[in-house]
Lab assay of single mutants.
Amino acid sequence: GATAVSEWTEYKTADGKTYYYNNRTLESTWEKPQELK
């Protein structure tokens, strides 16, 4: 079936920290989303 993983994109900030952005909800988070675990 369809999965929600594709909504999240992993980015890195200029200082090398990783964060996650959800293209559907426009939410961003420092925590790894449940969908990616």
Rank of each mutant, 00 (worst) to 15 (best):
G1N: 14
G1I: 14
G1V: 13
G1L: 14
G1P: 14
A2Q: 13
A2S: 12
T3H: 13
T3R: 10
T3V: 12
T3I: 13
A4Y: 05
A4S: 13
A4P: 11
V5P: 12
V5F: 12
S6F: 08
S6Y: 08
S6Q: 10
S6C: 15
S6R: 08
S6V: 09
E7A: 05
E7W: 06
E7L: 05
E7G: 06
E7T: 06
W8I: 01
W8G: 00
W8S: 00
W8Q: 00
W8M: 01
W8E: 00
T9W: 07
T9F: 10
E10M: 06
E10V: 09
K12Q: 11
K12A: 07
T13I: 02
T13Y: 04
T13S: 07
T13A: 05
T13D: 14
A14L: 09
A14H: 10
A14R: 06
A14E: 11
A14V: 12
A14P: 11
A14Y: 04
D15W: 05
D15F: 05
D15S: 08
D15H: 04
G16K: 02
G16N: 03
K17E: 10
K17T: 07
T18R: 05
T18K: 07
T18H: 06
T18V: 13
T18F: 07
T18A: 05
Y20A: 00
Y20E: 01
Y20K: 00
Y20I: 00
Y20W: 15
Y21Q: 08
N22Y: 01
N22S: 03
N22K: 01
N22V: 00
N23W: 14
N23Q: 11
N23V: 11
N23T: 14
N23P: 06
N23G: 06
R24A: 08
R24P: 02
R24W: 08
R24H: 09
R24F: 11
R24C: 15
T25S: 03
T25N: 02
T25K: 02
T25M: 01
T25D: 02
T25P: 00
L26Q: 14
L26I: 03
L26A: 11
E27F: 02
E27I: 04
E27T: 06
E27V: 06
S28G: 12
S28L: 15
S28P: 03
S28W: 15
T29L: 06
T29K: 07
T29R: 10
T29S: 12
T29A: 07
E31S: 04
E31W: 04
K32V: 10
P33M: 02
P33A: 02
P33W: 03
Q34R: 06
Q34M: 13
E35I: 06
E35L: 04
K37F: 13
K37T: 15
K37M: 15
K37Y: 13
K37E: 14
K37R: 13
